[in-house]
């Protein structure tokens, strides 16, 4: 535990040691605003809820989360600090978890800073705050899924641009598999079970379900299992690089 904490502390504070964190947070909030108010039609809907805000989270995360995760391991490899890290007396998985949690916590900070939205909607009407809370939790879980994928990919290369592009593509596949268009394509000629299986792999399916206001244990398990899987793959990638 103390190792994970030490890695977490180092990584988390490193976000704020450079302007990158602040630039990221500004862009994050700006895009959130643009999507909610212009594309989401927040006012026009005349409904006191944050649905137009959460609706775009998957698509924003598709680009914003890989932008955070791309540096996790690529930068360590590029600067050579991975040699410091991996010769310290800690198991690889401690480092993987510490770094992942730091990235996730950074995302939590960015998401918390969207609280003016919540205040606004409560000021304008009386929304169902349990739905909003569930949506926030769903959004965070989804962000964790994106980050775990990105962390694993960034361990594959010392080039951050490559890590970003590959992460976006893989995350996109995870979104796509829940897209009605894609599911319709499979529907009709494949058994319903297959369609369901494909849909159940998607972030969208599970996020949509949580967004309705109820956190189903299956959705929770999905996101946690997904995160565990990709972090495990992350450890495997790092171990494999030792032998190359």
């Amino acid at each position: 535990m103390s190792n994970i904490k030490a890695i977490f502390k180092r990584d988390f504070s490193s976000y704020f040691a450079t302007p990158v964190a602040y630039v990221f947070i500004v862009i994050f909030l700006f895009l959130m605003g643009v999507f909610t108010f212009y594309l989401g039609g927040f006012y026009e809907r005349n409904q006191a809820d944050l649905e137009p805000f959460f609706r775009f989270h998957p698509w924003l995360y598709l680009f914003l989360m890989p932008a955070i995760s791309m540096r996790l391991w690529s930068e360590e490899r590029k600067s050579g600090t991975i040699e410091l890290l991996m010769t310290l007396p800690i198991p690889t998985w401690h480092a993987v978890i510490g770094k992942f949690l730091a990235a996730w916590a950074f995302t939590v900070v960015a998401i918390i800073l969207t609280f003016p939205m919540w205040i606004t909607v409560n000021y304008l009407g009386s929304p169902d705050n349990t739905v909003i809370l569930a949506s926030y939790i769903g959004s965070l879980l989804m962000a964790g899924g994106f980050l775990a994928i990105g962390s694993c990919i960034s361990a594959l290369t010392k080039n951050q641009v490559i890590a970003f592009v590959i992460s976006v593509v893989i995350c996109f596949l995870f979104l796509l598999s829940g897209f009605p268009l894609v599911l319709d394509f499979f529907r009709g000629w494949t058994p319903q079970a297959v369609v369901n299986a494909i849909a159940s792999f998607s972030f969208l399916t599970h996020f949509e379900s949580i967004k309705k206001g109820v956190i189903d244990i299956r959705d929770l398990i999905y996101f946690l299992a997904l995160i565990c899987f990709w972090l495990y793959a992350n450890v495997v990638v790092i171990e494999a690089k030792k032998a190359s």
Partner: peptide, 21 residues
């Protein structure tokens, strides 16, 4: 080549190592 975490200070770096150790 003595790779180091560039954004850390000397003291915070040594403290990080002390944490891990």
């Amino acid at each position: 080549g003595a790779p180091l975490y560039g954004e850390m200070t000397v003291l915070s770096f040594l403290n990080f190592i002390a944490d891990i150790r």
